[in-house]
């Protein structure tokens, strides 16, 4: 543990009763995979839309010996990730890391790490709108009834509309999934590229929506199926070229604009994955070999 913060908070900011309340919601969510459990979401010292749901879930499950990693769009060093990581450093004093395999709790926005997760890890998603049927059916009373009766025909109407307008399923993020053959769930705005990683994952996956006051979960080793049509099966995005820095293929890439003459490159969105590969000596077409000192290895 690092030194005590100047202002003393209860461990991980929330009071114990609140954490108990959130844990009860989490347990219920794990017991009923994909079902949105209402919980009494608290005001957090950050605005809605900045991960208040994920932060509350993380606060409720964090222990003193946990190692926390926070990513935003796959990156450890964007504003949201840095702010939440330092929030828990200050209020819980837990160890933090950027290395996926060292973390026990990973809070994420918009991505699932490229490296396979293990059964000692928990992935916490920040969710803006938990209801997959929301834009098809605005009434909460009605969407709850549809979930209760597993009446999910509407979801396919949306996919039908996609195909009729674009010739293929044009939904690329927040792509709806069916969890354990029962509830249809919004996987939060992760790219559909990451959907297959949710299926049969060894790690526990928790979803927290602060403003909407919902928690849901996918227990480890649960079947998660992306909705599709028989003649238009679910497909993930493909990239023409490998990562420009580390040369990785089959990973999700971000576009980086290089100049004002149309120059661009595509690099891993998962920064830790990219750095790990580069430290291992992989070099992409625009990359440079990482000096061994920077790679965190013993100098030769």
């Amino acid at each position: 543990m690092s030194e005590m913060p100047a202002i003393t908070y209860n461990f991980a900011y929330l009071d114990e009763q609140t954490k108990r309340m959130i844990r009860r919601a989490i347990l219920k969510a794990i017991a009923v995979p994909g079902y949105q459990v209402p919980f009494a979401s608290r005001e957090m010292p950050m605005p809605y839309g900045w991960g208040t749901g994920g932060v509350q879930v993380t606060a409720a499950i964090l222990g003193t010996d946990d190692v926390l990693k926070v990513i935003d769009q796959g990156s450890d060093d964007t504003t949201n990730a840095v702010a939440i990581r330092s929030f828990f450093q200050a209020t819980a004093g837990v160890a933090t890391t950027t290395r996926t395999q060292d973390a026990t709790v990973i809070q994420t926005r918009h991505r699932i790490p490229e490296a396979a997760l293990s059964d000692r890890q928990v992935l916490v998603y920040q969710v803006p709108i938990p209801e997959p049927l929301r834009f098809l059916e605005p009434r909460e009373s009605e969407t709850r009834r549809l979930h209760g009766l597993a009446d999910y025909g509407l979801m396919h109407v949306k996919l039908y509309e996609d195909i009729s307008r674009h010739g293929h399923i044009a939904t690329t993020y927040a792509y709806p999934v069916s969890v354990a053959g029962r509830y249809v769930m919004d996987p939060s705005p992760i790219p559909k590229f990451d959907n297959p990683k949710m299926n049969e994952s060894a790690a526990l996956q928790l979803f927290g929506a602060g403003r909407e006051q919902r928690i849901y979960a996918i227990p480890p080793h649960t079947r998660v199926v992306s909705l599709d049509f028989e003649d238009h099966p679910f497909e993930v995005q493909r990239f023409a070229k490998p990562c420009a820095l580390c040369g990785a293929r089959g990973v999700y890439l971000d576009e980086v604009i290089l100049d004002d003459r149309g120059g661009r490159m595509f690099v891993c969105s998962d920064t830790d994955f990219c750095e790990t590969r580069r430290a291992d000596g992989h070099v992409g077409e625009l990359g440079v070999a990482v000096p061994s000192a920077l790679a965190g290895k013993d100098a030769a």
């Binding site: 025909g153 039908y160 009729s164 028989e230 003649d231």
Partner: peptide, 25 residues
């Protein structure tokens, strides 16, 4: 459903009873 295409409107019942073949629908 006013915001859904004519084909989607007609196909909704079929999809609601479990039809999952776009071409057939």
């Amino acid at each position: 459903r006013m915001a859904v295409s004519a084909g989607g409107n007609v196909g909704e019942r079929l999809m609601a009873v479990g039809r999952r073949h776009y071409g057939d629908i």
